[in-house]
Design a protein around this nucleic acid. Structure first.
Length: 846
RNA sequence: GCCCCUGUGGUGAAAUGGUAGACGCGCUCGACUCAAAAUCGAGUACCGUAAGGUGUGUUGGUUCGAGUCCGACCAGGGGCACCA
């Protein structure tokens, strides 16, 4: 027998056996509990790389493990197939987005098949197929009827040279990525979904998501951003009677107000710009910046004095100047604020820049008024009010309540709950997306496409020789008759945000071939919600929040009877790799380079030097991708799975290195030799120790898998195989050795499924390991009778002793004080105190 | 700018507030070999001959005891509503 494992032949053979037996295809059944595990579906960007692989491997482990535990496991796969890259590819390569997308799907599916995943392929979906998106067109019409969808004007990034809308990603340093033109903010009428109607519900729901990482729950909570504050109006000094509505979360600091600022998009600013060139050019300057909050917030804070002033509501005769400021967002609150520089850093920076007053009104608990001053750092901590008339000596909370009370009593203001969350704009001025099923009629307005005319499909005869949505210029597609009045009308040419498709796909998998509706209620009732969702942390807020909203919206329309789509969530880290650049500054792929004479990398072919760059997320643009095929050919999928799972904790990034995959491959062979060369006729060895190791490993690895500690579980597996190797070499008892090998194989099955099948068959089993159950740990063989106790003197380790498990504290203390190393460290002094932590540690304090 | 996360040997990482470095990679030495690869065995945080001391990004605190909890800071990463 060869001492090398024939990985290529073996992996292909078992993949075929799984496929032939259709063991991963599932239907609803009453005799087994269901388990739905889902990996976030991929965008078909081109080739599958080991970064994708990590995501699907984790779902695969869960699927195989839960299967072994007796669950009826649903583990589906599909394609998030609409999106911008397809249109970019269409422009660059003179192809059609559909052609490019479907070719990528075919290539990536082939790679996925190489992975031998426990996927029910009969449920495969692609979101760009009309039989998928027609259902979401129906949902949109339902949302419209339910008052959850509406139109309003909102800003987009406008490229004035290409005359097209740009995505934030396509704006680089404030300029269009292709044209180089300075981007402008421009208003367009667009469709919105009323996610804010569920703001409180989405917030409350977070507390029930116990299976989600704390950090994701926190991020969602902050994103929704519920705040209690005050809405009130300032009176303009002139024209008399005109008022400006403000929202603030710090009404307590009103006596420290030194200016008022409004958004460049505020109606007051707009009105002023008509007669004031200065205002007009300032607003124009503010708009020469994209719509992205990150850009707006990091831009230099600038303001423009409007010359208007308002009266302070509580200080007679005091007026505040009104500025237009680029950092005030029209989307939040009322688009107008008052600035209290002493207690808000942004206001302070602004005040220092424009020479405005800084009036401290909250004093820290440990200071008094004479010594407390604000320089360049605002004070945002707790304290008591001063310089504040009737609020003096109150706490911040008391002062907030008092100010709100006074405004409410005077009927000039209102305590208000506000959310940072904004309604979801779903209109995209793009071709490669789901058409919004609306017809615009001069007479009737926005009219829903009649349901019997769904789906509204994309026209196929389009070209991408100029920027923008080609449907807009299509000769006939737009022109229709109004369904209501029959007159000439036009189709909506915008398509949905691609988050629309990914908000409900988890339900489509439950009933993927249903032509009548998106899913049958009873099928979703059976499988949903998803028991374990797995994907990148980059989706922590938007995708996951949209899907949570969509589920509630579907419930409101009668499609479902639950709120939360994902019971548990795991956010896995990325696969990262070194990046390389050639002499010409262009990215090079790892396949393009090799080690030169002096050990440094050179470009293959011409031996020109290569610069090694940062270690970054694998991405097509940086070329630092390792394709799946090359890995599977050289080392097999099991070795790749092993590396990806064992090298880092799953929530952290893992670096793909050549050395790592070779090491994993060696271990695959070592396991193969251990089991195939084992002699089950031995009579010797320490059978008790071996049995403890076997059952201890089963126990611990089971716990590790339950907790997603795959790296630790694999470390336990290695400990067991090390022990079995020693036991085997010592001609250990054959029955125990077999018991150990069988446990090892069943434990490795979720991690290295192909090798496990091969070894399981070698051990004489007729049934595949994929259909066998998870091993049970025998409680009698878990743990041991003695424990090692550490002894510290004043917190420093001085000795370790073996003691019987659960020994009385007084006996343990006696044994510890009797140790010579302990006595030496005590230097003859008496113990002041002895802390005994049973079975762990004893600390002697002298 | 705002929200969230991460930081431990040469390196990937372990460690319910209780023996820091499990399990690997690499390296060193040895066995096998004509030789190499593969495989097997021993060693491997740092300083020190040793006794011992020092060590978890920096810094301060809480505690009998801190990688772990709290405060301040530094560095890196993710997200910020039209990338997916």
């Amino acid at each position: 027998m060869s001492d090398r494992y024939n990985v290529k032949e073996t992996e292909a053979r078992w993949q075929k056996a799984w496929e032939d037996s259709k063991c991963f295809e599932v239907t609803e059944r009453a005799d087994k509990p269901k388990y739905y595990t889902l990996a976030m579906f991929p965008y078909p960007s081109g080739k599958l790389h080991v970064g994708h692989m990590r995501n699907y491997t984790m779902s695969d482990i869960v699927a195989r493990y839960k299967r072994a535990r007796g669950y009826n496991v649903l583990n589906p796969m599909g394609w998030d197939a609409f999106g911008l890259p397809a249109e970019n590819a269409a422009m660059e390569n003179k192809t059609h987005p559909a052609k490019w997308t479907y070719a990528n799907i075919a290539a990536m599916k082939q790679d996925l098949k190489l992975m031998g995943l426990a996927i029910d392929w009969s449920r495969e979906i692609a979101t760009c197929a009309p039989d998928y998106y027609k259902h979401e067109q129906k949902y949109f019409l339902d949302f419209l009827k339910a008052g959850l969808a509406y139109q309003k004007e909102s800003f987009v990034n406008w490229d004035p040279i290409e005359n097209t809308v740009l995505a934030n990603e396509q704006v680089v340093d404030g300029r269009g990525w292709r044209s180089g033109a300075l981007v402008e903010r421009r208003k367009l009428k667009q469709w919105f979904l009323k996610i804010t109607a569920f703001a409180d519900d989405l917030l409350d729901g977070i507390s029930q998501l116990g299976g989600w990482p704390e950090k994701v729950r926190l991020m969602q909570e902050n994103w929704i951003g519920k705040s209690q504050g005050l809405k009130f109006t300032f009176e303009f000094t002139k024209p008399k009677g005109q008022r400006l509505e403000i929202y603030t979360t710090r009404p307590d600091t009103l006596f420290g107000a030194s200016f008022v600022a409004i958004s460049p998009d505020h109606p007051v600013a707009q009105k002023l710009s008509k007669n004031d060139m200065g205002v007009e050019s300032f607003i124009e300057k503010c708009r020469k910046i994209g719509t992205s909050e990150a850009v707006i917030e990091t831009a230099e804070k600038i303001g423009h004095d409007t010359g208007l002033t308002v009266n302070h509501p509580f200080i007679a005769g005091k007026t505040l100047r009104v500025f237009i400021a680029n950092f005030v967002l029209m989307d939040y609150g009322t688009g107008a604020i008052f600035g209290c520089p002493a207690h808000d850093q942004r206001d302070l920076d602004f005040a220092r820049k424009y020479g405005l007053d800084v009036i401290p009104v909250v004093i820290p608990p440990d200071k008094d008024g004479r010594e407390f001053a604000i320089d360049m750092e605002a004070y945002t901590g707790p304290g008591r009010l001063y310089n504040s008339d009737f609020l003096n000596a109150m706490t911040i909370d008391e002062a907030k309540a008092e100010v709100i009370k006074r405004f409410e009593a005077a009927k000039t203001g209102q305590g208000t709950t506000l959310y940072r969350l904004r309604d979801w704009g779903v209109s995209r001025q793009r071709y490669w997306g789901c058409p919004i099923p609306i017809i615009h009629c001069q007479a009737c307005g926005a009219v829903p496409v009649p349901e019997d005319q769904l789906p509204v499909t994309l026209p196929e005869d389009v070209t991408f020789d100029k920027p923008g949505n080609p449907v807009y210029n299509h000769p006939t597609w737009k022109q229709v008759k109004c369904p209501t009045c029959g007159k000439d009308a036009e189709r909506e040419t915008d398509t949905f945000d691609t988050f629309f498709e990914s908000s409900w796909y988890q339900f489509r998998y439950c009933d993927p071939h249903n032509a009548k509706e998106g899913f049958a209620k009873d099928k979703v009732k059976h499988w949903a919600p998803v028991d374990q969702y797995i994907g990148g942390v980059e989706h922590a807020v938007m995708h996951l929040l949209y899907a949570r909203f969509f589920t509630r919206a579907l419930k409101k329309c009668g499609y479902l009877d639950f709120d939360e789509p994902f019971t548990a969530l795991f956010t896995q880290g990325m696969v990262v790799h070194e990046t390389y650049k050639g002499e010409d500054g262009k990215w090079l792929s790892p396949a393009d380079i090799e080690k030169g004479h002096n050990g440094a990398y050179v470009k293959k072919g011409d031996n020109t030097p290569v610069t090694v760059g940062r270690i970054e997320k694998m991405s097509k643009s940086r070329k630092n991708v390792i394709g799946l095929e090359e890995v599977s050919v050289n080392f097999g999928i099991d070795a790749a799975r092993l590396l990806i799972l064992s090298d880092s904790p799953p929530e952290r990034d893992v670096e793909w290195t050549e050395g790592g995959i070779e090491g994993a491959w060696k271990y695959v062979n070592r396991l193969w030799r251990l089991v195939t060369l084992a002699d089950f006729n031995g009579k010797g060895g320490d059978t008790d120790a071996m049995k403890r190791k076997i059952h201890g490993t089963i126990d611990m690895m089971t716990q590790d898998l339950e907790k997603f500690h795959f790296n630790k579980g694999i470390a336990r597996l290695r400990e067991l195989s090390n022990a079995l190797e020693d036991f085997s070499a010592a001609k250990g008892d054959g029955a125990v050795l077999r018991e150990g090998c069988e446990a090892l194989v069943r434990l490795m099955a979720p991690v290295m499924p192909h090798l496990a099948e091969e070894l399981w068959a070698h051990l004489g089993h007729k049934e595949m390991v994929v259909n066998s159950s998870w091993p049970e740990a025998d409680k009698d063989w878990i743990g041991s009778d003695t424990v090692t106790i550490a002894i510290q003197v004043n917190g420093k380790l001085r000795a370790t002793i073996q003691l019987p498990k659960d020994l009385a504290a007084s006996d343990a203390e006696k044994a510890a004080l009797a140790e010579t190393a302990v006595q030496k460290a005590m230097e003859g002094k008496a113990a002041k105190k002895v802390i005994v932590v049973p079975n762990r540690i004893i600390n002697v304090v002298v």
